[in-house]
Design a protein around this nucleic acid. Structure first.
Lengths: 341, 341
DNA sequence: TCACATTGTCGAACCGCTTCGAAAAGCAGC
DNA sequence: GCTGCTTTTCGAAGCGGTTCGACAATGTGA
């Protein structure tokens, strides 16, 4: 293994000079610096990460704590993960991915062993038990997902309240008066998926204000049960003219369910969903939707985290709670309801 | 930050004694060890990962190099990633996930900076340019995906040759004589997805031996193009009685395509696919299939890698090339072809 | 009681890098 | 040619562990 000592010897300078030549933290004569760089090239020197971490107390690694809820649509998580790892790399950081069940333990382990400079938590629950540990940790943390208490951490999420309202408003403007909302499985809500009821409650409230009949249901997250669920909901409310989807599996299953029932979109029924564009592209999703903005959220969380790690954010500065405004991507699946239906 | 020096002082022993008491590498009087452990509890001591790595040259981290090919079905990758991270954690290792485009560069960076003890490469191509670097690296590596040259690395993959044959054999036994094979997009093949042509060639060869008419196509990986592709293939071969799928998007799209054409499985057409069970469960995939065994492959790669890292494999031992035998999970989507069709 | 193992503990060195304070070198002005 | 100031380089210490060789304290047998 080639060390900075080897570089120094070959370049004919001291180790500290070699170090300064590489870091630029002190003035070095151009000629000397050139000799050092040449030696680096010749020997193929790369600093040892462990040694540097020990000396600087910075690992240039961020810890990414994923959290896979049973019954949740797992592939959606990949978009967030890639957003985080890609942005981190662009900012000079590597990412330690932890998929451990026991997130609290993982957090304690990484924080106290100083393996990482900061944390990104995915899929944060309303009362996420990881937050207590995170607030105690020496390293800063950024969340993707809005918890009840946001003190001491930076938060990034889609505005699910706004999303619920927007869905209802959009349908209302078109003239719909009876809608069905299909959420994630109840299981997900119980495990802390606050975004589910946040959207649902906002939609119900707005519907009540507007005099709209909104039937809110939990749907399964797998086939074929979600297909059966959808048929059941449609049977129960024959006069409903619009569907709101906050459930990826439901979106994926809906085309064939509608086909079997001989229903056309948007002539017979209007549909609007909430899922990632990538998901929409991969599957035959001809439905207008509100993007989950997974990539954007992951990247924003990392940017903020790195800014904190590198001290670019004043110590006393308030934490950020950044909610992305929902935007409808129009795929033409909503229209005025059929007259007389 | 609490160090082993603090522990030693509180316990009233030397640093080395504290270290030995914790590692057990030398005999320590029970009473002394108890005092050390008590001090550890009291102070909440956790060893500093960087310092330990520097002293032992072991980081207890493995580098996971993912590789996302354009047009490939990304969510499938998540299963491999989780298999790797979970197995690694169970064996006491953390996982550094690298999604960097330039895998060669990433590998060099991690290897020479000694950030990881070993590598797992996902989605390995026939002539993967990462292998050259990996063979030079001081750390061992395990691959998921079979390259042309396997020297110096341990390899784990599904037996795609066997898979191609099995699909054809299965259909042949049922009496089918004309089949359509839908592979991943040509793009994927060109980028190095060897598994695609490996399966296709094996299927074609076996079909030729058995006197079966096999029409092999590349299919798109996104909707709605793959739906159009499928319709085109079916139009072109009206007498084909069976479909072989090596393309997740095709599998996901097929149910609605068949519904539109009024075809029933397996009465009108037999179908067999190759995708992960998780994928099958998530979507309405009523097709018998050969599991990708993503989780199993990821775990096996990690087990082998860790065995090498920890020196449990003799230095001169041959590298492992482990191909998982394909097995058909029967979901009842294949049957004898309709007589007279 | 003494020589000799054996067992348990300690001090010091080392892993590779950064950084501080001080020494050395260079340069101006007188 | 000397003083006084910068600029550049160096030596040494320290980050927090592990590990080796030596020493001290026991215990054993003669």
């Amino acid at each position: 293994m080639v060390t900075i000592g080897d570089v120094a010897r070959v370049a004919g300078v001291s180790r500290s000079t070699a170090s300064y030549a590489l870091s630029g933290k002190r003035a070095i004569t151009p000629a000397v610096r050139a000799k050092v760089l040449e030696a680096v090239q010749e020997l193929g020197y790369t600093p040892n990460a462990g040694a540097r971490a020990l000396a600087t107390s910075h690992t240039k690694v961020i810890g990414l704590l994923a959290r896979f809820l049973e019954d949740e649509f797992a592939p959606a998580m990949l978009q967030y993960i890639l957003g985080v790892t890609n942005e981190a790399r662009e900012l000079g950081y590597d990412t330690l991915l932890v998929s451990e069940e026991d997130g609290v333990h993982a957090l304690e382990r990484l924080a106290s062993s100083r393996m990482v400079d900061g944390f990104v938590l995915l899929n944060v629950a309303e009362n996420d038990d990881r937050l207590g540990v995170l607030r105690q940790a020496a390293q800063p943390g950024a969340l993707v997902g809005l918890p009840e208490r946001t003190s001491g951490v930076d938060v990034f999420d889609l505005d699910f309240v706004g999303t619920g309202r927007l869905m209802v408003d959009h349908m209302h403007e078109l003239g719909h008066r009876e809608l069905i909302l299909v959420s994630q499985p109840q299981h997900v809500v119980e495990r802390g998926g606050a975004y589910v009821w946040r959207l649902a409650n906002a939609a119900l409230e707005r519907a009540a204000q507007l005099g709209i009949d909104l039937h809110a249901y939990f749907g399964s997250s797998t086939q074929p049960s979600i297909g059966e669920d959808l048929n059941r909901f449609l049977d129960a409310h024959p006069d409903a003219t619009g569907l709101l989807l906050n459930n990826e599996a439901a979106a994926a299953a809906l085309p064939s369910v509608l086909a079997e029932r001989g229903l056309h979109v948007p002539a017979d029924v209007s549909v609007i969903g909430r899922y990632s564009d990538d998901f929409a592209r991969t599957f035959s999703l001809p439905f207008s939707s509100i993007d989950s903005a997974a990539d954007e959220l992951g990247r924003a969380a990392v940017q903020q985290l790195v800014a904190r790690i590198e001290g670019r954010i004043p110590e006393g500065a308030r934490n950020v709670v950044h909610l992305i405004s929902p935007e409808i991507l129009d795929r033409g699946s909503t229209a005025a309801p059929r007259v007389g239906s």
